[in-house]
Design a protein around this nucleic acid. Structure first.
Lengths: 296, 296
DNA sequence: TAGTGGTCTAGACCACACA
DNA sequence: GTGTGGTCTAGACCACTAC
């Protein structure tokens, strides 16, 4: 456990900070009376200070930070201000907060790396499935909501060149390592879907099963990558706070004759995966065989 | 302006919510005394309620939400609780908060769509440049920090198969539409770099200029996509709150003989761009020529 | 000047994890 | 039980924006 510093720590400015300078260098409590408005809010200076300690190894990876009351006392600020600083670090994936336990420094980002060769046409990689096969993991249907006029549904209809009334929809969650990693939505221009396939809780590779049931062969048409914050619904599905960065991977698959047959939109927990595209033939040197995953 | 509802609004549960039921249906203020702990925190129920109003068109796109004191009075909760709810909606990109002005409903997500044909080898699309050429926009050098032992530097060295001491680094910001859209870092296994090229504030296409200066021809080796929250440094560079979802696009380019010559890591404001990969030849039907951008 | 959101405090009660 | 983080209140002062 890191040594608990006693007394009040000065939070004025910090290294490389522009304003906020006060005359004397005396250690001074920063309280309600803003003798010299520092322009940088207190909670942010606190966040920087904590970040510096983490970078310096004062709080190494995996270590528990001092508790909120401890930090509150050490820096002479309100506990809520401490919480605001720590929340910022949590959103930046620097620390992980475990309720009832403590706040811990995150290890340097372990990610699953998924290689995709963009020149091959028929493959069903790119789904997170093949990365970490494990018991209890997999894709699970969470519902088959009717296609109404939601913005998502409208988008799907536009992408498939159909009317919303012609579409069926299924929502799933992909679990890996005991955690929900991705929320998926599928739209298809046919229906009704086999009740057994879209039964909530059903495991399996939904895309493959649906394609088989419909008797169609699917090819990638296009895929797109973006980043958004989790909305309230996705946050609940994935068990993360709203606003958590999600990697959105969406696209259309079509039959060999070019008819759009599937629009898929996946929201993937950003800390869980990245997608790699290789543009050169597999290298011969062997020294650096493609991208190095961040750890795993 | 939406009509200001008077009185106290009931926040118990909300549609489709599991727990939190109380006996009578009377409108009741939810105060300090939790007569029946609803399990779902107040601020989240408030967020849902506001989201519902936005979905229902009570607060249409572009409209200003009632001010925090107004919402505080309407729902009978503390202003800080209101702020917590609104902050959640802001992180989910549902509303935009303008200090001193108000909180506004965001339009349905306008994004720049950038098509990339993954089968062609030599192209410098994929950079955000070609999307929105405009005056005052472009890429600007913000610094050429020495390569020390930071985790990023170590990663770059690993990717390039070099020691950190062999690398040079440049950081830039890409501005589009008057806003910073992407923060970029480049690592190259040579140096020193031409002082004129890495002078802070210098505009231009840095990759092309550096390659020309070094007399090397660059090809894509691999590119990867991920999503993270903005850390404190990126948040400052991009002018967004820490934790804002960023699309990370990183990769290695090499010379025609396969020698790694550039590691690049871009953090792109998630609300600004998405990357599209086309797997099929350009379509003949013409009806749906590739993916439809979300608006722009 | 008036109204908006941004920050900060002090204090309270709660749910959760763990010993 | 003890300590952790999670929620909520009341009140205050501030900075920014627009009129």
């Amino acid at each position: 456990m890191p040594p608990l510093q006693v007394g009040i720590v000065d939070l004025r400015g910090g290294a490389g900070h522009a304003r906020g300078s006060v005359g004397s260098g005396a250690l001074r409590r920063i309280g309600r009376v803003a003798t010299n408005p520092p322009s940088t809010p207190l909670y942010r200076r606190l966040a920087r200070q904590l970040q510096e300690r983490i970078d310096a190894g004062t709080y190494p990876a995996g270590a528990r930070l001092p508790s909120e009351p401890e930090l509150s006392a050490e820096f002479g600020v309100n506990r809520l201000t401490v919480r605001q600083a720590v929340a910022e670090l949590e959103r930046a994936a620097v620390v992980e907060i475990r309720r009832g336990v403590g706040t811990f420094v995150r290890p340097p980002a372990v990610r699953v790396s998924i290689a995709v060769d963009p020149r091959s046409q028929r493959f069903d990689l790119g789904s997170v499935h093949s990365a970490l096969p494990d018991a209890d993991d997999g894709e699970f249907v969470v519902g088959a909501p009717p296609v109404a006029g939601s913005p998502e549904d409208e988008e799907a209809a536009r992408q498939l060149g159909r009317e919303t009334a012609e579409l069926s929809r299924v929502d799933t969650v992909i679990r890996l390592g005991g955690r929900a990693r991705a929320a998926c939505s599928y739209w298809m221009p046919f229906g009704p879907l086999p009740a057994d396939l879209v039964r909530p809780g059903r495991p399996g590779n939904l895309v493959l099963d649906l394609a088989r049931a419909a008797g169609v062969e699917l090819e990638y048409d296009w895929r797109a990558f973006g980043a958004i914050g989790a909305d309230l619904a996705d946050a609940e599905l994935l068990g993360v706070p709203a606003g958590t960065p999600l990697l959105v991977r969406e696209g259309v698959s079509c039959t060999p004759d070019g008819t759009p047959a599937l629009y898929v939109r996946r929201r993937i927990d950003g800390s869980s995966a990245r997608f790699v595209l290789n543009f050169r033939e597999s290298r011969q040197d062997g020294a650096q065989p493609g991208p190095q995953p961040y750890g795993l």
